[in-house]
């Protein structure tokens, strides 16, 4: 993957800095939320797979890190403010029950419900291009958290991640299954192929997951995010299968979602109880951030779904 196309002054500066093609100097302010989002996405990517045209040393370059820090502070403040404005007052004290209550209360629009019965082929392809930004690095943000957890939560996260990464079989690694699916529906399967098409809400959704995964301080939020993701995956994945089959787009892409119906019915139990429940017992100060991370997962997905449905002229339900 190459450094994404700039979307404003900050991402322009960053691209030049990473590829060594621009003048030095201080980073300019971002022009827009979109400019800010692609800049932070690019900075986080330096800690995943990097870019073929960027200097790998940029990941730990103090000047680049300074920019990343500023963008991360702004993102975290924004996410925490949204949570503070929306947090229900009467959540159960036990973390697994509180997670279930947050998920039950989620009334965000469902893209999977729309795909199941109404979306046309072009809309589904557009959604898959957007989803590819995450699914081609599926579970990678959570993997950063493993060494930062106490014994029980660490073992449980590995039990879950082992399945995400194919149970030792590269053919069954979830990100690889998605790449196979992309190829089968005529899209590009390479890692990061559609980042330049990612809408701001999608970049923010990915940035939130990376922010939580990359900071030890935010391990509770990362695991809460994982739990909410898994707890809202099985039934929507089944709807995706039905929608893909309705549009005669079955095959490997439907198989990817089909795998998630079964896998995530297991993972949601592991994530809520064995990971988040034991983490909150062993490190009680993490309980609040577990719920913050879970709610944020639901909220950024709702914002993404709303933006996508509106772009299709559909009123978000």
């Amino acid at each position: 993957m190459r450094v994404p196309k700039p979307r404003g002054a900050l991402s322009q500066w960053l691209g030049a800095r990473l590829t060594g093609t621009g003048t030095a100097g201080t980073a300019p302010a971002a022009d827009s939320p979109e400019d800010e989002a692609i800049a932070l996405w690019t900075l986080h990517e330096l800690s995943y797979r990097g870019f073929e045209d960027a200097d790998d040393r940029a990941e730990w370059d103090p000047e680049v890190l300074h920019v990343r820090h500023g963008l991360e502070v702004a993102l975290e403040d924004r996410l925490r403010q949204r949570w503070a404005d929306a947090a229900p007052a009467d959540l159960p004290a036990e973390v697994p029950a509180a997670l279930a209550a947050l998920v039950d209360a989620d009334d965000g629009p469902s893209l999977a419900t729309y795909v199941r019965r109404e979306a046309d082929r072009d809309q589904v392809l557009e959604l898959l291009r957007q989803r590819s930004v995450y699914h081609l690095k599926e579970s990678d943000p959570s993997a950063f958290v493993v060494p930062r957890l106490p014994v029980r939560a660490k073992a449980a996260l590995m039990e879950l991640q082992y399945d995400e990464y194919g149970d030792g079989d590269p053919n069954r690694l979830h990100a690889h299954l998605f790449a196979r699916g992309l190829e089968a529906v005529g899209l590009r399967p390479e890692y990061g192929a559609y980042v330049d098409d990612a809408i701001t809400e999608n970049l923010e959704m990915n940035n939130a997951g990376s922010l939580f995964g990359l900071h030890r301080r935010l391990r509770g939020a990362a695991m809460g995010h994982l739990a909410a993701f898994e707890m809202t995956s099985s039934i929507p994945s089944r709807k995706m299968v039905q929608g893909l089959e309705r549009l005669e787009m079955g095959g490997p892409m439907a198989a990817y979602y089909d795998e998630h119906v079964e896998a995530d019915a297991i993972h949601e139990q592991l994530a809520a109880h064995d990971i988040c429940g034991t983490l909150a017992e062993d490190e009680p100060d993490q309980a609040a951030d577990i719920l913050f991370g879970a709610w944020t997962c639901l909220d950024v997905e709702a914002r993404f779904a709303t933006a996508v449905l509106r772009s299709w002229g559909v009123s978000p339900q």
Binding site: E159, Y162, D163, D167, S234, I235, R238, V261, E262, A263, D264, A265, I266, E268, Q269, L270
Partner: peptide, 20 residues
């Protein structure tokens, strides 16, 4: 898989596995 989830409500569309 190292862990499987078996349906107990009998309403799963893919018995014997849980589908949520």
């Amino acid at each position: 898989r190292p862990v499987v989830a078996l349906c107990r409500c009998e309403k799963s569309s893919r018995l014997p596995w849980c589908d949520g």
